[in-house]
Amino acid sequence: MSRRCTPALLTERLSAWWFTPAPAARLAGTRITHGAFSLWYLAKRRSMLAEIHRSGTNDFAPVGPGRILSKPLPATVADRIVDATLVAAAAAATGLCYRVTGPMAGALLTWTLSYRNSWTMIFHNDNLMVLHAAALAAGPSADALSVDAWVRGCRTGPSGADARYGWPLQLASTTTVTTYALAGVAKVAGPLGWKWTSGESLRRQVAVDGVRKEAFGSPASPLAYKLYGNVTLFRILALGSMAIELLGPIAIFDRRLARLWALAAWQLHWGILAIMKIKFRYQLSGAAYASFMDLERLIRR
């Protein structure tokens, strides 16, 4: 039997790809980007979260780790957990005692955002932020560009690339493409199947979203009105978004292709913002795709 098609060879190749060496600064750059975004995102919502914590038990529908609760936490306890998450996220972003603060920030972010999503509405833009925290916290993400590295007297971290800095990035990127693929599968497995790509459902989705906004006194995007009649355009948009969602797991195996995919996914979210005024903030900021980029090049400049 030829060696070409043995499972052992496949495992070997997958392993070589998964443990592709990367410089410490690339992983550190992703940690800083993720940490800075998480910090900004939570700090901006601190008062809104405090309001949600006081919104009563009727709308409490716990998700994720929050399911251990049968009723909401006392509001002040929930508030303090948000504050602890902010502190841990700041420490993780700066790489201070990262071995402790990295996993702690990841765990607290998971709790805080799960609790935030436990009031009848799941915000799907939060998922990746939490999953990326889990990927980054598992690796030596603060070996460069961190307080820890500065204390050790090696600000830029060890020279050269190493597999230990590569795999957390692969994990973050693979998680990203997987979530998009799941969204694509949900559409194909949904009531419309592949007919979803006809664009009609997307067109109506845009309209339904616009009507809901208008019914609550928030104007829909002017672009939604302008484009609504253009069925062909919606077909192209539906095909494009389906391609982005389903092709990610293939693109991930080639670094250049993966970067192109990340660019396309980023554009997809800007398109959603323009037509539907829906903000996937983590994706729009570009922070969600940091693990695809050679961030060390920016830092070197």
Partner: peptide
């Protein structure tokens, strides 16, 4: 996706059902 009626979304683990529902020509708000 393959559960007949009791599909349940979660966080942070989700099946990302957004935009996948069939939308009729009318909607009630």
């Amino acid at each position: 996706n393959w559960r007949p009626k009791t599909r349940k979304d979660g966080f942070p683990l989700s099946y990302y059902p957004m935009f996948s529902a069939r939308r009729p020509a009318t909607t009630t708000v």
